[in-house]
C-alpha cells in the first residue's frame, strides 16, 4: 500500500470532524471518497496533507509516518493536494502559479519539460499564461489547480471536489483528466459529492457518513449497492 490511514480522528476545537477513519490507497488506480456535505471528506484529505492534525491514529506513506510532519515536508515526499475550491493564487499569472507548484524542485532541468507537458494537456493555460489567474473562468481555474499540482511531480494526488460548480462538459473533461493521470501511473484519491462521476472513475470507494466510514468496497460493487443508490445516486 502506498498510503495507509489507520484509525484517524480529527476535531476542530470540540467539534469532531472525522472519527476512526481507515483508508488504504494502492500503488495505482483511483480511490474515491464519497459522502454528503459535511461528512468529513475534506478533513480526511487535510489530515493526509498535514493541514489538519490527526488526534488519534496514524498515517503512513510508503511505510513511513507522515502524520506529524508539516504540510511542506509532506509535499516534499510527493503527496500533492488539489484543495477544495481550487485555491489558485489570484494575483499571480497562470505561469507563476504553475512555477509555484514546482517550488520544491528548484531549477531541476525537467521542470521546463513538465511545464510544456502541462501546457500540452491544458492548451487554455498556454493561451493565458501571462494572464492573472483571477481573471479565468471556474473551469480554467480548476485546470490550473490540477496543472499546478502536476508541476510538483506527485507520487500521490489528492483531489477535493474537482467538479464542484462546473458545467457538465467541463466535468466530463475533468473526469478524462483524472483517468489520464491515473493511467500515467500516479494514483489518485478523489473526493466527490458527485457520486455518479466518482464511482465511474474509481477502482475502490469509501462512503463517509457523519465522520465515519460507513461502507467500502470496489467501486462497481458500491455502484450497485441499495443504500448507495438511494442516498447518493438518486435512483
Amino acid at each position: 500500500m502506498l498510503l495507509e490511514m489507520q484509525g484517524v480522528s480529527v476535531s476542530y476545537g470540540k467539534v469532531s470532524a472525522i472519527t476512526d477513519v481507515s483508508i488504504k490507497v494502492p500503488e495505482k488506480g483511483v480511490v474515491t471518497i464519497i459522502g454528503a456535505n459535511g461528512a468529513g471528506k475534506s478533513t480526511t484529505l487535510r489530515a493526509i496533507s498535514g493541514l489538519a492534525r490527526a488526534r488519534t491514529g496514524e498515517i503512513r506513506f510508503d511505510g513511513e509516518r507522515i502524520d506529524r510532519l508539516p504540510p511542506d515536508r509532506i509535499v516534499a515526499r510527493g503527496v500533492v493536494h488539489v484543495p477544495e475550491g481550487r485555491r489558485i493564487f489570484p494575483e499571480m499569472t497562470v505561469e507563476e502559479n504553475l512555477h509555484t507548484g514546482a517550488f520544491l524542485r528548484r531549477g531541476a532541468p525537467d521542470v521546463a519539460t513538465d511545464l510544456e507537458k502541462v501546457y500540452a494537456r491544458f492548451p487554455r493555460l498556454l493561451e493565458r499564461r501571462h494572464q492573472l489567474a483571477k481573471t479565468m473562468s471556474g473551469g480554467e481555474q480548476q485546470m490550473l489547480a490540477i496543472g499546478r499540482a502536476l508541476m510538483a511531480k506527485p507520487r500521490l494526488l489528492l483531489m477535493d471536489e474537482p467538479s464542484m460548480g462546473l458545467a457538465p462538459v467541463i466535468v466530463e473533461e475533468i473526469g478524462r483528466i483524472v483517468e489520464e493521470i491515473s493511467a500515467e501511473g500516479v494514483p489518485v484519491v478523489l473526493v466527490e459529492q458527485n457520486a455518479e462521476l466518482a464511482l465511474e472513475l474509481a477502482d475502490y470507494a469509501y462512503v463517509l457518513e457523519t465522520g465515519r466510514v460507513s461502507l467500502e468496497g470496489p467501486a462497481p460493487e458500491l455502484h450497485g449497492n441499495e443504500h448507495v443508490r438511494a442516498a447518493y445516486l438518486g435512483v
Binding site: 498535514g50 508539516p70 504540510p71 509535499v75 485555491r87 493564487f89 509555484t100 517550488f103
Partner: peptide, 8 residues
C-alpha cells in the same frame, strides 16, 4: 494554506 500545499 494553498502556499503550504505547494511545499512552501
Amino acid at each position: 494554506e494553498a502556499a503550504a500545499l505547494q511545499g512552501i
